[in-house]
Computed example of a mutant assay.
Amino acid sequence: MSAAPALRLDGVRFAYEAMRMRFDLVVEPGEWLALIGPSGAGKSTLLDLAAGFAEPDAGRVLVAGVDVTSRPPAERPLSILFQDNNLFPHLDVFRNVALGIAPGLRVSPADRTRVAAALDAVGLAGFEKRRPAEMSGGERQRVALARAFLRDRPLLLLDEPFAALGPALRQEMLELLQRLRAERQGGPAAVVMVTHHPEDAAEHADRVAFLEAGEIVAVGPTRDVLTGQGEPRIAAYLGTAKPGT
């Protein structure tokens, strides 16, 4: 029997101001899906619906085969990384990461070992006592990655967490993410990534979904979608449309 999809949006409908969004999407276990499209197309809203930060007006949200439509974010088997890294400024690195498995910060010796291993995996061994304000943007995102992977969820949502980083550092973080998900004991985590950088999708995503005006206009293998085959709206977004088309 094949495994249930890591994420399924089944007839999800959501209205925001004048926009009525409609999402039907299946993300397979271990798949890396990139969401691209113009600003305001609904990419972040799609992640919010999956994560539980927004409630659909209709339809179902399923994660690993479980209907989580009515569950709050903390009870959904997924992790999400935001652009602002969502670290607590008053907590040191160790405690920010430990929150992933011990929300009350009651950390057992086994938990301490796991936190130390997670920090080592992202290249931050020895940073345990630092506060977020004492770190660079890339280092803070490494802390957020360590916490996400320590939670060991089958689905990871990325809402442009590396957008504020320079090109070289952004690629370094994506390569680190690729390595961490490949090393997950239960198999690679599925990734749904919002990005405004098509080159990031080209280098890392298995498939790409193009959104416009609250709908998934096209979804398919990365190469096919990014070449805009048969879809002038994608070509126009990417700037590859031929004059007069």
Rank of each mutant, 00 (worst) to 15 (best):
I101Y: 01
K129V: 12
F94C: 07
L145Q: 02
V192F: 02
V122I: 04
R147W: 10
G138H: 11
D120V: 09
M173R: 04
V107I: 14
V93N: 05
R140I: 14
D120A: 14
V93S: 04
L119Q: 01
A168P: 00
F162I: 03
A182L: 08
L174H: 13
R95N: 10
K129N: 15
L158Y: 03
N85E: 12
R112E: 08
K129S: 13
N96F: 06
G126R: 05
P188E: 01
E160W: 04
P161K: 05
A168H: 02
A189D: 03
A146C: 01
V107Y: 09
P77W: 02
E134F: 06
P167W: 05
L156Q: 01
R106H: 06
A110R: 12
P154N: 00
D84W: 09
H90T: 14
K129I: 09
N86F: 09
I101K: 07
E128M: 06
A125F: 05
R151T: 06
R76F: 06
E134W: 06
N96K: 09
G186E: 07
M193F: 02
Q171I: 00
A182M: 10
Q178G: 14
D152H: 04
V115N: 03
N86K: 13
H196G: 13
R76V: 05
A121N: 02
S136C: 15
L91T: 03
E139S: 07
L78Y: 11
M135G: 06
Q141I: 15
V143G: 00
P77S: 01
F88N: 12
H90L: 15
F162V: 00
P109G: 00
M135V: 07
V143S: 04
R140E: 10
A182C: 02
D120S: 08
R170Q: 12
R181A: 09
Q185F: 04
G137L: 10
L81W: 00
L78W: 03
F127P: 12
V122R: 08
L150E: 15
A146P: 03
E128Q: 08
F162L: 00
R181E: 06
A163G: 06
G137H: 05
L165C: 12
R106A: 14
D120E: 13
G104R: 15
I101W: 01
A116R: 08
A125V: 11
G104Y: 05
S136T: 14
D92Y: 07
D159Q: 10
F149Q: 00
E183Q: 14
A133K: 13
L91V: 10
R153A: 15
P132S: 01
F94T: 10
L150H: 13
D84S: 14
G186N: 02
E128C: 04
D159S: 10
A164D: 08
R181V: 05
L180T: 07
N86G: 10
E175L: 12
V192G: 08
D159N: 11
T195Y: 11
L78S: 12
